[in-house]
Design a protein around this nucleic acid. Structure first.
Lengths: 366, 366
DNA sequence: CTGTTAGCGCCTTCAA
DNA sequence: TTGAAGGCGCTAACAG
């Protein structure tokens, strides 16, 4: 193809397109197929070059106010909006971040997703949402994440080390939300569930409780495992043992687990520690309505999370609350920093939460 | 490349790029700037043309299994993923849909967002999320929606007629979730809030209640207005009048509104109808704890929504529940149909909900 | 079945 | 300051 004079570049772009559009008209009865308006259309109407239009829509590009005005008017008249997709293709910055979130996280912390989104929005990034029914669906979803050329990822779901490394290889910054990578050095924001466990158990021991029961989390819940590990550590240090039964994190399961727990122990424990609030509420209702117990006089019940219903007057649950606002803010700013400067080293930020004393556990002297 | 007069077309793409990357190396200490791997890289490695690679990654394109295998291996080794953004640019189909949702909707129906996302996911579309703190922020957000060339929009927030028309003009299908357009002919899925109001009120009248009070919604809530209009219609038809006080949809507001309501009426009404569940719960707690009333023996309280806490044993609220699953499914399928065929006429789908009898209202004979 | 070619809509040097 | 030209990574005719 040496002597190829005629067909270099794409000179007649504008005119060619128009021709295409015209040719398409007869076929489509509706004008629904009407092309989107591009910077070329605006340029033509304003009587300037396409690149001039581009500059008018780019932050901090040089253009005379005269030109700017002509372009803006034409754009207005045509209803032109720069195509963020095309822009991203060339700038290698899509301004898209992926949020991968499990239904479990969303169920107990519906505000997390919302907070993340508004904060990213405020910093000029859009959220591409990936919802997982089961934490194990991650792999299936990651392909899509990569395909969309997101600038970064917030993962509020379990990622394997291999998956974390994969992001690394692709040069896409990741921040884990409320979990750590097993071994890979990934950035994360997390609350200190272990410490929460410690705090809550210490508080109960200090109040003079002498016997305990535990309603444990599903075996695959990182958060639950940490919490209960924290609890167990303290109890053990004080010489207490605590029988436990696993629940599934659901409200119903709190009641059934409590029943089972009581079957296992000869004597009713003074305090029951549940791996999350939903089960604690279930346990309270079961204790009150099925066992006729007064809470907290005859039985103390505590949870973790600080979900909405825990504050209702009928429960006033004693629990530990995650500082969701601070955590989402941290996740967003850590990710944005790493998008700006991908060489930044990973960082873990750990947040402590508030102990909500509530009224579902005896915390004063007996 | 025989007598290649330097600059025609883009033949030497691969080599040129490599050169660029190499040039960038010295500057960046890290290889973080490493280019993403493209179909050209895969093609080169597999010893085939770039379009061959493209075909291997397109559904239903013709390619020999031999070629397919070579390409797939090379892609695997390089960690190649087709760039969905670039693909969308040329196919005019981004496979992106926007979901615009207000914090209020998200607060009372956290599952809506999740359901929409998983359903779109199942049909091959990704969700670009736009969260509104206030319903009035819509305008601000629409620019972004247009910029990202989404294939369609689900709006669970108040859109003005002008905004609906704007989508129309751009040829982007829209489905309104849980609201109607004022006048513009837009597709929507909605539950029949008016009918909910009728049902609930009829049920209370049938049970023999003779006096009523209303805890109304904020004045700008479409949903609340409809519900209460339905209630009022029935009460009026039976010759009852009902004093009302406005709440803000929040739990706290249920209690304060109830207090105010009782101040307004000489005699305590038999039943109080709240525009949503959150306020109903607040009213119940206030009635029990501040007024020492037994619910429902001394006062019946009902709500709308069927939010999670309404089912807790301590409340067992009498309410009307939205069929969220059916509604989200309808919204998604309506939108997808219109993306496939933009000439489809708008359609409104109206869903009836379930009356949850609960235990917060006397529904049997007095 | 495979490779060639011409863009999708935009940004970005490079000259003028 | 402005315009011309060359891609970003990919798909889609169209030849062969």
């Amino acid at each position: 193809m040496p002597g190829k004079p005629p067909k270099t570049g794409r000179k007649p772009a504008g005119s060619r397109r128009r021709a295409v559009a015209a040719a398409a008209q007869p076929a489509a009865p509706q004008i629904s197929d009407r092309r989107r308006v591009t910077s070329y259309d605006v340029a033509k109407r304003a009587g300037v070059s396409q690149s001039a239009v581009s500059r008018c829509f780019t932050e901090g590009a040089s253009a005379s106010s005269d030109l700017r005005e002509k372009v803006m008017r034409a754009a207005e008249e045509l209803g032109y909006r720069p195509n963020a997709i095309a822009r991203g293709l060339i700038t290698r910055r899509s301004n898209l971040v992926a949020v991968v979130i499990s239904s479990r996280t969303n169920l107990y912390y519906p505000e997390v997703l919302f907070e993340l989104t508004t904060r990213f929005e405020a910093r000029g990034s859009r959220v591409l949402l990936f919802a997982l029914e089961h934490e194990s669906d991650v792999d299936h979803v990651l392909d899509k994440v990569f395909s969309y050329q997101v600038d970064g990822v917030v993962a509020a779901a379990r990622l394997s080390d291999a998956q974390v490394v994969q992001f690394e290889r692709h040069g896409i910054p990741v921040v884990l939300y409320n979990r750590f990578a097993d071994r890979a050095p990934a950035s994360s924001v997390c609350c200190d569930h272990l410490e929460y466990g410690h705090r809550l158990a210490e508080r109960l021991v200090a109040a003079g409780h002498k016997s305990f029961g535990i309603i444990d989390s599903p075996a695959d819940s990182f958060v639950g495992i940490e919490r209960i590990k924290g609890v167990r550590g303290v109890l053990k240090a004080h010489g207490f043992d605590a029988p436990s039964v696993r629940g599934d994190y659901g409200y119903e399961s709190g009641g059934t687990a409590l029943a089972e727990l009581l079957k296992k122990t000869r004597k009713r424990p003074a305090a029951v520690i549940c791996a999350n609030d939903a089960m604690a509420l279930g346990a309270i209702d079961y204790a009150r309505n099925e066992l006729g117990l007064e809470i907290p006089k005859q039985l103390s019940i505590v949870g973790f999370d600080g979900i909405g219903p825990a504050y209702l007057a009928a429960y006033r649950l004693t629990t530990v609350r995650q500082p969701v606002r601070r955590m989402t803010e941290a996740a967003v700013s850590m990710l944005m920093e790493r998008i700006e400067d991908p060489t930044l080293a990973p960082e873990k930020r750990m947040f402590s939460g508030d102990l909500v004393e509530g009224a579902s556990a005896r915390l004063g002297p007996a």
